[in-house]
Design a protein around this nucleic acid. Structure first.
Lengths: 207, 207, 207, 207
DNA sequence: GATGAATGAGGTTTCATTCAT
DNA sequence: GATGAATGAAACCTCATTCAT
């Protein structure tokens, strides 16, 4: 049984990753529906038909992009959630982790933001809804723990708070550019500071 | 009690508005590109071709939806900005106004959020970019005034703050349902409370 | 029996003629297929649907335009052919008659030129082909008589000659503008002069 | 005898030319507007959509057909005009060249005749108007030279003469069938004979 | 691995025509 | 006589996908 038969310079899985990165970039820039398979192929320097040697369909491309992203995201989240931190520290760690993810997977995150709701209606993308649920559970319970422990305010609608924090973080993917002025950690720090303490110079703290 | 009302059920401009409302709802739910003109027609109880009696094209429908929304939005914003309020009060008024707008034009706002960047590349939608610029100017200068006056924190990147506040407000359109639990004013109040004072129970205020 | 019951300012057949004139103008300018019924209605100051009060269909409009033209043309031609003139005089009279027709029915002639072949394939327009045949017979036999009598050259392909004379006359409809520099009779005179004697200054006549 | 010919039946540019020839045939027979893209595809033995692999649009097909024809026409005309012939010989050469062109590009010429005026209103087809102007200049100046030199009659309206000769030649495309009884050169000879010397047996030459 | 060519479904748009008012 | 609104067929075009080479 031959173990080294591939004559290609770039082994198959490497090429796939490159093509997916290209596709993700275009999907993020133009939207999934507005992106033609030909556009991706152009960007990759090949003809539209050639992409089908690597992928089953356009759909399977987003699928792979999104599930790769979510897999990695959850590896990070699960580590945080398993660390047994206090509510505030958990929130801080999750937000920081999220910005790191945006830094590394910006196109994927942008696609997720824009297309997730639409795609989730198809059975194939059921995992998007699952993730959404798991996501909500993690954040909501942490916030609740924080309220119970007196770390977070108790005069706010907790679901509103959840949405506020969640959206606040992820929409950043729509304007974030890697290699920009701030590192993801610095952005996370400032975002957390705003979310936790507000943007007003608080002379009298809310009771 | 009038005895000689026009025999038409719906006078001309009224019909347009109805159809636009229908279209907006579908665009918001499925995305502009993923929405077929036939789908809109179905929802309106007519055939696809019939829509072209009222509108030039699918594009002109979004156009009308978005520009009507922006016109109304700016009527509100301009009034606020002309009122000569302090920075904090201005921010509060703008956010409240925004949530009212979301309440009345939810589909339009959702479309604006999702498609704006993509559409703005076409000359026809240049006004989207213009509005964006005007928007940024209004918020940024208000924030700067607040920092100068000592109302807002000066240890934050001001552009980051701008984006934070902006996104925080508008993303709400993606989950907001009119007639829900909270009134737009109540949501605005809570959002402002979070944005201004943070979600943490601040025992020691940030310096 | 009432003799004056019509309240309209313009009696029905008058209006029809006006509308047909408008339609003919547009058909001639844009081509039958490229002309929309709406365009005609616009030009007539009414809505597309309203035309159907006056006419059965777009097709029946061209039909009426063309058959009215051909009827009148043949009234003139038949008179000439019945007059018992010599071949040269017959040709002269037919050509003059043709230019008069172009002067009075320019749009109809232009439509006939451009659309005749295409329309003639439909049963409804069979009379176009009939006319064509009758037309050819009249000219060809006159030319043949002329050759036999020694009035016309006998060294030319007679069908070529026929087409030459025929086209030569009718194409004029494509550039002729009534009320222009030359009267139809003057144009006819010059055309005949060219057709009969050529444009070269003949020092030695062809044998 | 080559043993290693390309395996494709028809190399790329060859296929385009075939399809254009098919399209030209149909356009000429039915008129541009009345020709559906499906009809062309049928004739070419493929589906309508498949044509769009080769061409951008129906319009770009006529465009290519017409500009190819005009390019070739002007190659011929320019050669004649540069040859420094006398007016009569120039006219003879131009007419002969025209009939050759009709012989080789009959469908293109027919399309040009029928659709040129209509198409020329669009910016994309501005070259049609340009060509028209250049055309007129060439013929008119030659005729004027001939009148000045005493080769052509001076008692005719020169613009009328121009139109007469021009139309006379090109309308032939509407009935000419390649491979017919007469060669293009023979037709040109007879046409020239008629145009220059007339169809009448001139016993007394015009002064 | 990639190309060139084609498919076929479906999308947007046009337009002659109808009809109640 | 005319309007406003709609129909329905058909047109042009797009695009994901397939497949022989």
């Amino acid at each position: 049984m031959p173990t080294k038969k591939k004559p290609q310079v770039t082994p198959t899985p490497e090429r796939r990753r490159e093509l997916l990165a290209t596709a993700a970039e275009v999907f993020a820039a133009q939207g999934y529906n507005a992106t033609t398979v030909r556009r991706i192929a152009d960007e990759a320097g090949m003809l539209a038909g050639s992409l089908y040697y690597h992928f089953d369909s356009k759909e399977s491309m987003v699928d792979e992009i999104l599930s790769a992203f979510l897999d990695e995201l959850w590896r990070g989240y699960d580590a945080v959630l398993a660390a047994g931190l206090g509510p505030r520290e958990t929130i801080e760690a999750l937000v920081t982790e999220s910005f790191r993810e945006i830094d590394r997977h910006r196109p994927a995150v942008a696609i997720y933001q824009k297309e997730s709701r639409h795609l989730a209606t198809q059975p194939r993308f059921a995992y998007l809804a699952d993730s959404q649920v798991k996501f909500e559970k993690a954040w909501l319970s942490t916030l609740e723990r924080g309220v119970a422990e007196g770390t977070f305010r108790d005069d706010l609608d907790i679901r509103l708070t959840y949405r506020f924090v969640r959206d606040t973080v992820w929409v950043a993917a729509s304007w974030y550019r890697p290699g920009g002025y701030h590192s993801p950690e610095e952005i996370a720090r400032q975002y957390l500071s705003m979310v936790l303490d507000g943007i007003a110079l608080s002379t009298q703290p809310p009771s």
